[in-house]
């Protein structure tokens, strides 16, 4: 078991390393993006650019520049932006992280509640009218582009109806929970619902499939033979087993979202989270910030993967060999 965990962690570190190299190479391969020229300003003379290039260590060989960047990012933690010079990358990320966490945590509660309820109701009523209706709504939710849904929500709440029934919806933006919990929730409610729609659809569908499978298992038949009520069987027995894959799925999705996969939702609603930070730094080709944000995001994805894998290995010894 320990061996498995160690192997898993080593490969996680390897993945992180490769991603850092990949990001680094992609951006130094981009033509027309000489960081020195951009730092120096709009019409700096060649001498000035050379001076900046030297001061920032941009005249060193690529591997050394990579190592320097990693050193500044992880060890010294003083890596600073190429665009907002002096603005440190690490604090930028630590400031953006709570926004993303607020968005994702709130949305997760909503999608778990709706997804699980929907899945259970559909499974309990399989073959009846309500089942395909719920499943169709699930498919529709999965099929809507998240950014478009967000824009439509903006159009409805900030456009023509803003002066009547949606007057309570504040303009997009973020208010920290420490400043005003009410405003925090009010500003996030629309982003929560938008982000949750997609995942609620997925979870309802997956859970229904799991439940239907479980209801055909032997232990359920046994329970039925004992004369337990159908509702009790569904909630007490089938749901309990079916939640395991849901929880592992949740682990992966939550990790990815915290890591910046909520990018489009953050962009559309102007929430200054990790996704928006990544997006703006990509637009500015601000390599240090991109590197920081991508490493941060990859960390959560890799961590979530590793945790889920290791948890599975505990539950199912066969996995350890693989």
């Amino acid at each position: 078991m320990l061996g498995f965990i160690i192997r898993r962690l080593i490969s996680a570190i390897l993945v992180m390393f490769s991603i850092s190299v990949l990001v680094f190479l992609i951006f130094f391969a981009t033509p027309g993006v000489d960081p020195a020229a951009r730092i120096a300003g709009r019409s700096a003379s060649p001498a000035i650019i050379a001076q900046v290039r030297h001061a920032f260590g941009l005249d060193r060989p690529l591997p050394i520049r990579w190592a320097l960047m990693m050193d500044h990012l992880f060890i010294k933690q003083d890596l600073s932006s190429y665009v907002n010079i002096g603005s440190r990358v690490v604090p930028q990320i630590t400031q953006a992280a709570p926004v993303t966490l607020s968005l994702v945590a709130g949305a997760a509660v909503i999608w778990m509640v709706i997804g699980v309820t929907g899945g259970v109701i559909a499974a309990a009523n399989r073959g009846k009218f309500i089942d395909p209706v719920i499943m169709f709504i699930g498919i529709a939710a999965v099929s809507v582009p998240a950014y478009w849904l967000g824009e439509v929500v903006n159009l409805i709440t900030q456009g023509g109806l803003h002066h009547s029934i949606f007057a309570w919806v504040p303009p997009s933006g973020y208010v920290p929970i420490t400043q005003s919990p009410g405003q925090w929730a009010l500003h996030l409610i629309m982003p929560w619902l938008t982000l949750a729609a997609l995942y609620a659809g997925i979870y309802a569908r997956v859970l229904r499939a799991e439940l239907v499978n479980a209801l055909n298992e032997d232990y359920v038949r046994t329970a039925r033979a004992k004369g337990l009520s159908e509702r009790r069987i569904l909630i007490r027995h089938a749901l309990r087993c079916s939640l395991i894959p849901i929880v592992s799925l949740f682990g992966l999705d939550f990790g990815a979202l915290i890591g910046g996969a909520a990018l489009l939702t953050e962009v559309v609603f102007g929430l200054p989270g990790v996704g928006l930070l990544t997006y703006t730094s990509l637009q500015n080709l601000d390599l240090p910030v991109i590197m920081g944000a991508v490493m941060y995001g990859a960390f959560f994805v890799v961590l979530a993967n590793a945790v889920v894998d290791i948890a599975y290995a505990f539950l199912d010894p066969r996995v350890r060999i693989a």
Binding site: G41, S43, A44, S45, I48
Partner: peptide, 23 residues
């Protein structure tokens, strides 16, 4: 500080060429 226009606008100040070479 490598002002963006140090090499153009302010290069006409006496002694500027030495400053541009060794800031």
């Amino acid at each position: 500080v490598a002002n963006p226009n140090a090499g153009s606008w302010y290069a006409g100040i006496v002694g500027a060429s030495a400053c541009l070479a060794k800031p």
